[in-house]
Amino acid sequence: TNFTTRQLTELEKEFHFNKYLSRARRVEIAATLELNETQVKIWFQNRRMKQKK
């Protein structure tokens, strides 16, 4: 998935405060950013892996 700059900014901002999202928060973010819930979930999984390295 190619994310827009706005989407990436918002996802990174959320990640800064929360490494893990509740389902409710994931649904909320997905709706706000016009993404589906799975895209948000996978982005967070990938971002956590990236941070571990």
Rank of each mutant, 00 (worst) to 15 (best):
T1V: 06
T1C: 09
N2W: 03
N2Y: 07
N2H: 12
F3K: 00
F3D: 04
F3Y: 08
F3W: 05
F3G: 01
F3P: 04
T4D: 05
T4A: 00
T4E: 02
T5G: 11
T5R: 09
T5Y: 08
T5I: 12
T5C: 09
T5K: 14
R6A: 14
R6E: 15
R6P: 06
R6I: 10
Q7Y: 02
Q7H: 04
Q7K: 01
L8K: 07
L8E: 14
L8N: 09
T9Q: 10
E10V: 12
E10T: 11
E10W: 02
E10G: 10
E10I: 11
L11Y: 00
L11F: 03
L11C: 06
L11M: 02
E12K: 01
E12G: 02
K13F: 05
K13N: 01
K13G: 03
K13P: 04
K13H: 04
E14Y: 12
E14K: 03
F15S: 03
F15I: 00
H16K: 10
H16M: 13
H16L: 14
F17W: 08
F17M: 11
F17A: 15
F17G: 10
N18K: 13
K19W: 10
K19V: 07
K19N: 15
K19E: 15
K19R: 11
Y20I: 08
Y20D: 15
L21A: 14
L21W: 08
L21M: 03
L21V: 10
L21K: 00
L21N: 04
S22Y: 04
S22W: 05
S22H: 00
S22Q: 07
R23V: 11
R23E: 14
R23S: 13
R23T: 13
A24V: 08
A24K: 13
A24C: 11
A24M: 10
A24I: 06
A24D: 10
A24H: 08
A24F: 04
A24S: 12
R25E: 06
R25H: 05
V27D: 04
V27G: 12
V27L: 13
E28D: 05
E28C: 05
E28K: 09
E28S: 11
E28Q: 11
I29K: 01
I29R: 03
I29W: 02
A30S: 05
A30W: 01
A31P: 03
A31S: 12
A31G: 11
T32K: 12
T32D: 07
L33G: 05
L33S: 04
L33A: 06
L33N: 03
L33Q: 03
L33I: 02
E34V: 05
E34P: 00
E34D: 13
L35T: 03
L35E: 03
L35I: 07
L35V: 09
N36G: 10
N36T: 15
N36W: 02
N36A: 09
N36Y: 05
N36C: 08
E37V: 06
E37D: 05
E37N: 03
E37W: 05
E37M: 01
E37H: 05
E37C: 07
T38H: 13
T38V: 10
Q39V: 09
Q39C: 09
Q39E: 12
Q39W: 03
Q39M: 10
V40E: 02
K41I: 11
K41D: 15
K41E: 15
K41C: 12
K41Y: 04
K41V: 13
I42S: 10
I42F: 05
I42D: 15
I42W: 14
I42M: 11
I42V: 12
W43P: 00
W43M: 00
W43I: 05
W43K: 00
W43C: 06
F44H: 02
F44D: 03
F44C: 04
F44Y: 05
F44R: 00
F44I: 00
Q45M: 09
Q45K: 07
Q45C: 02
N46L: 08
N46F: 01
N46M: 10
N46P: 00
N46E: 15
N46A: 09
R47W: 02
R47E: 12
R47T: 04
R48H: 09
R48P: 03
R48N: 08
M49K: 08
M49L: 11
M49R: 10
M49V: 08
M49I: 07
M49T: 12
K50M: 12
K50L: 15
K50H: 11
K50Y: 09
K50V: 11
K50D: 13
Q51A: 13
K52Q: 11
K52W: 05
K52C: 12
K53D: 15
K53L: 08
K53G: 08
